[in-house]
Amino acid sequence: MTSTTYAPKAIEILDVAEMHMRRGGFDAISFRDIATQVGIKSASVHYHFPQKADLGEAVVNRYRDKILNYLGEPTSYTMVEAIEKLITLYETALTGSDSVCLCCVLGSEADTLPDKVAHEVNVYFTDLSAWARTALNPKGMTKDIDALATFTISVLQGAMTMSVAMNDNTQFTAAANLLKGQIQTEEFRQSLFKG
């Protein structure tokens, strides 16, 4: 995946914009507010990202690259290791920023996003699902891998959202532990594999 190289000031703008978007969605970003936080004029934000949609697109694209780079090569994991990697990914975001996944926030408002931002959110979930399908099915034997990948991502994102909404990270921990424990049971494994 090709990553865009940004100037240091553009990186600061992206960092601030991502923080605002993770806490309040796409409408939470304001060029004036970002400029104030970064210590530049609003026109300088427009220099790097001419329109709000350009900024949103760049934030999501960079976020996707960061997540996929963190997850690494999906074929290098066992099913349990893949689940643990996903749990750590979401847990780190939750405990590190007290907010949900950027694309979870934006996905909930996809029908009102500018087309280019909505497209990037769609690509994020497409790529994350593809990673999960491969990583959760290392030997190509699992039945219903699409459902398993969707279920895994949905459980983690939903538990993360509940934890933030309830200000109680034990919601996420309980769901993640149950998910991991369920996948490790023999009964669950037998239900996944072709006879």
Rank of each mutant, 00 (worst) to 15 (best):
M1T: 13
T5K: 15
P8Q: 01
K9L: 13
I11S: 13
I11T: 14
E12Q: 15
I13L: 04
L14S: 03
D15S: 14
V16P: 02
M19R: 14
H20C: 11
H20G: 07
M21S: 07
M21T: 05
R23G: 13
I29H: 12
S30K: 09
R32D: 14
D33V: 03
I34N: 02
A35V: 00
T36S: 15
T36Y: 11
T36H: 14
V38G: 08
I40R: 05
K41A: 14
A43E: 15
H46V: 14
Y47E: 03
H48T: 06
F49S: 02
F49P: 02
Q51D: 09
L55I: 05
A58W: 03
V60K: 02
N61L: 10
N61V: 09
G72W: 11
G72C: 10
E73M: 03
E73C: 05
E73Q: 11
T75V: 09
Y77D: 00
V80P: 04
E84Y: 05
I87M: 02
T88C: 05
L89S: 05
L89F: 08
Y90D: 10
Y90H: 15
L94C: 07
G96R: 04
D98Q: 11
V100W: 00
C101N: 13
C101M: 07
L106S: 03
S108W: 08
S108H: 11
E109G: 02
T112N: 08
K116W: 06
K116F: 00
V117R: 01
N122K: 12
N122W: 08
F125G: 06
F125Y: 13
F125N: 09
T126M: 13
D127R: 13
S129K: 10
A130L: 06
W131N: 10
A132P: 08
R133A: 14
L136D: 00
N137E: 11
N137Y: 05
P138M: 04
K139N: 15
G140S: 07
M141T: 14
M141I: 12
T142G: 03
K143A: 12
L148N: 10
F151N: 12
F151K: 09
T152N: 04
S154Y: 00
V155D: 01
L156R: 08
A159H: 01
A159I: 08
S163Q: 05
V164Q: 10
M166Y: 13
M166C: 09
T173G: 08
A176F: 03
A176K: 11
A176D: 06
L179A: 01
L179V: 07
Q182T: 15
L192H: 04
K194F: 10
K194Y: 10
